[in-house]
Simulated assay, not measured.
Amino acid sequence: MMAEFDGRAGSRNEVLCLAAGVADVVAEGLRGLTRRMPGPAEVRQELRARGELALRRNGAAPEAHMEILARQAATRLQDG
């Protein structure tokens, strides 16, 4: 089934063509990705490394160990 493109912005056919184009780009990207990745173990390692980087970049950094100890000591001094 081949839909004719009528040239009107927002038409049903245009939306269908755009969606098909996006799906084709995504599918091509996935095909390229699977060609570059040699095996499941390497894929898992790569995804884990990317996830750790993303969490470090976007997440709150954990408090430094010495900072935690200093706060605990300060609390003990205040309490008596």
Rank of each mutant, 00 (worst) to 15 (best):
A20S: 04
G21P: 01
P38H: 05
L53D: 11
E52A: 06
N58H: 15
L47N: 03
N58A: 07
L30A: 12
P40V: 13
R56Y: 04
Q45W: 12
A27Q: 03
L47V: 11
P40L: 11
R57W: 10
A20K: 02
P38E: 13
V26F: 04
V43A: 15
E28M: 04
D24G: 08
C17K: 06
A60Y: 10
R36I: 08
L53C: 06
A27L: 04
L18A: 04
A27H: 01
G21C: 00
G51Q: 10
A19K: 03
R48G: 06
L53A: 11
A54K: 00
G39H: 13
D24P: 00
A20C: 04
T34P: 00
R44W: 14
Q45Y: 09
R36Y: 07
V25I: 04
A54T: 03
A20R: 06
N58V: 09
R36H: 08
V43E: 14
R36P: 00
A23C: 05
E52R: 03
D24A: 14
V25F: 00
R36V: 10
V22S: 01
G29Q: 07
V26K: 00
L53G: 10
N58C: 13
A20F: 06
Q45V: 13
G21V: 00
E42D: 15
E52G: 00
L18M: 03
A27R: 03
V26Y: 01
R35T: 14
L30E: 12
L33K: 02
E28W: 07
L55Y: 06
N58L: 15
A19E: 11
T34W: 03
A41I: 08
R44V: 15
L53Y: 04
G51A: 13
R36S: 09
L33R: 05
R35I: 09
R56Q: 08
R56P: 02
L18N: 05
V26P: 01
V22W: 02
G39S: 15
E46C: 05
A19W: 01
A60V: 15
D24K: 05
G51S: 13
R31L: 12
R31H: 10
C17G: 07
E46M: 10
L18W: 02
R35F: 10
V43K: 10
R57V: 13
G39L: 06
R44Q: 14
V43H: 09
G51N: 11
N58F: 15
V26G: 00
E52C: 03
E42V: 15
R50E: 09
G32F: 01
G59C: 14
R50F: 09
R48K: 11
V26Q: 03
A27F: 01
A41C: 09
G21S: 02
R31C: 10
A54E: 03
R48Q: 12
P38V: 12
G32N: 08
G39T: 09
R56L: 07
E46K: 05
G32P: 00
R48V: 15
R50H: 06
E42M: 15
R31S: 12
C17I: 14
L16S: 08
Q45K: 12
R44T: 15
V22F: 04
T34S: 10
A27C: 00
G39C: 13
L33Y: 11
L55S: 05
Q45T: 15
G29P: 02
L47P: 02
E28H: 07
